[in-house]
Amino acid sequence: MTPTISVSNLSKHYKVPERDGGMKAAVISLFNRKYRTVKAVDDVSFNIEAGEVVGFLGPNGAGKTTTLKVLSGLLHPTSGMVNVLGYEPTKRSHDYLRQVALVMGNRNQLSWDLPAIDSFELQRAIYSIPLNEFKKTRDDFIDLLELKDLVNKPIRNLSLGERMKMEIVGALLHRPKVLFLDEPTIGLDVTMQRRIRTFIKEYNQRWGATVLLTSHYMADVEALCKRVIVIHHGHTLFDGELNQLVTQFSSFKTLGVTLPDPEIDLSQYGEVLTRDGARVTLRVPKAKTSQVTANLLSDLQVDDLTVEDTPIDDVIDSVFTSTKEAK
């Protein structure tokens, strides 16, 4: 089966001017301008099948947004092949644009001064959505995101989270087959983040849409993505299932131990991460987890003991930190 998104050896390089600070360097740069090539994306390859929800992870400047922009046809790649739904995105064919959507958490396309309901009508015209289909989709989305009381208020009078929900509705009214979501929950409170996650999940399941999501909130990724692609300095570091990422990059487990005596020193069992009254968390090498657990239970009176994988945030952080140090 042909993948919905196919990226092969994608590179996007920018030539940027640079100079030293100060007046002398500024004057010299007028006559002798120096450039540096920035490899925003460098030889990245991956395939995404129809209906998959894939997390695209990486620190700021890793190349995530650049890749999304190439996939959505905004940027022309320096080299490599990109194919989405059988289209070459850079050709920006209208048929292609009708089947995709790019939602950026910090950008809006709805009219600031008008109620969203008016802007939705414009979206209908832009995407030539048949009227009945438009009304049904719009009303479904409004119900799903609980926006009924808000659609008649001007966008400028809505909170950030409410605005984002409206933006998502506007962006998906044409029921795109492929969604590029660039930090859709950025700056939102926990409740609003959860609501948007649920909606994306529902959309994916209901319409079988393919979703490529970037987010710095691991809760988004954990809730939505079975598979993640980790990118750093323009290179792919990892492409696989989320739990494999933890297995591959984390050689530790976290033990939570509750003791009747909060004074007992547990440092001989592992690295003490936190101590909150009688509750202590320990970091222990994965290979020694069984042994340490057995020792704790045999040596001490333990009220409660939990064994957990390292939180995904910590794993990701350690991946990026180790790569940085290795450079």
Binding site: S72, G73, L74, H94, L102, M104, R107, I126, Y127
Partner: peptide, 12 residues
């Protein structure tokens, strides 16, 4: 401001 990116995503 990045507004053009949003416009370019439209099939018009």
């Amino acid at each position: 401001e990045g507004q053009l990116s949003m416009m370019l995503m439209r099939p018009i």
